[in-house]
């Protein structure tokens, strides 16, 4: 019974957070000066709005009734999975977002995997050479890189490798109308992926590196490492099997906690490279003031982030019993 409590407390937090976003989504357009329908649907909709549609929408949102009725109408819509209609894309918001989401997930997961592997290896190597040139060089340069705002890292790579050298394509995820198939398609996909992923990895890798390094440093000072060396383990085995494996727990949890941050950064990177994911969608929604799309995207992001956070929190308290008692 007692073990269930932290889980329930956590879920309560997430419900509260979700409710906060819902109420912002509901209240913001209705608090704006002027016609609430205009604020809900944005500029794009006004162009194609007919009197008939207006009447229909006012009825749908219950805009002519009290705010409690409006809230009920809003929640009913959400329960039906109805995020509204994007007048810019002339399609259901949920369909538009679902079309873009795979690209964002591809970028995020690829960058996360690469950055984690590189960060862990470099962290372990640096820890075993603590204070020497390689360690100090790596620490300083990765700290420098991780301080960079990701979108500027993207711009920098775009300017160097895309604009100046012309090695990589400047925008998009695939060459449009090229009709490539099979291996050529894959090559095209990868050449478009290279720069955005590189930008994400360059900024991300620093955090993983620093955590692995500091954990590995404290583990290398433990007596079982001395034992391993005394019984003649190779240095490689000591570094990776003994200290490396033991420093993974903080790395895993820390990585999990940084996924939301990464997701947001990916959106910025997508805008720089015009990558057809949720980020570019967000940019379009902001520029064309397509509010239903904007709200849908931010709602989806919140749900994604909360799900990941909840998962990591639960996993964390399973892996580390001390966290369970702290609640």
């Amino acid at each position: 019974m007692k073990n269930d409590l932290p889980g329930r407390g956590l879920i309560l937090n997430y419900v509260a957070a979700l409710a906060a976003i819902f109420s912002l989504n509901f209240a913001l357009p209705r608090l704006m000066p002027g016609d609430p329908l205009h604020a809900i649907y944005g500029d794009e909709a006004l162009v194609s709005m007919t009197a008939e549609m207006e009447a229909h929408l006012i009825k749908q949102f219950a805009l002519d009734r009290t705010w409690t009725d409006q809230l009920a109408a809003y929640l009913m819509g959400l329960l039906h999975g109805d995020l509204g209609f994007s007048y810019y894309y002339k399609d259901q918001v949920s369909a538009v977002i679902m079309g873009a989401l795979p690209w964002t997930l591809l970028l995020t997961l690829l960058a996360l995997a690469i950055a984690t592997v590189i960060g862990v290896i470099m962290g372990i190597e640096a820890a075993s050479r603590r204070g020497r040139l390689l360690d100090r060089g790596l620490t300083a340069s990765l700290m420098f890189l991780s301080g960079f705002p990701m979108f500027f890292m993207g711009i920098l790579l775009l300017l160097i490798f895309g604009v100046s050298l012309g090695w990589a394509p400047l925008f998009g995820a695939i060459t449009p109308y090229s009709g490539l198939e099979g291996l050529d398609y894959l090559k095209d996909l990868c050449s478009h992926l290279a720069l955005p992923v590189a930008a994400l990895v360059l900024v991300l890798v620093g955090d993983t590196f620093l955590i692995t390094r500091s954990t590995a440093i404290s583990i290398l000072a433990e007596s079982f490492i001395m034992t391993a060396r005394a019984i003649g383990c190779s240095e490689f085995k000591v570094k990776y099997a003994h200290s490396g494996r033991n420093s993974l727990l903080p790395v895993v949890t820390e990585t999990g906690m940084r996924i939301p941050h990464l997701l947001i950064q990916t959106l910025f990177i997508e805008i720089v490279f015009s990558y057809p994911g949720v980020g570019s969608l967000l940019n379009t929604a902001l520029n064309s003031r397509d509010y239903p799309l904007l709200q849908g995207i931010l709602l989806l992001l919140t749900v994604l982030v909360l799900t990941v956070n909840l998962f990591v929190d639960l996993l964390y308290s399973k892996l580390d019993p001390r966290v369970r008692y702290a609640h």
């Binding site: 937090n13 906060a20 913001l28 941050h261 967000l282 902001l286 931010l298």
Partner: peptide
């Protein structure tokens, strides 16, 4: 509860309006 939502999401939402 506030800690679980990334501030930048709320920021974008409010700033857009």
């Amino acid at each position: 509860a506030m800690y679980s939502v990334p501030p930048i999401i709320v920021m974008i939402l409010v700033a857009a309006y």
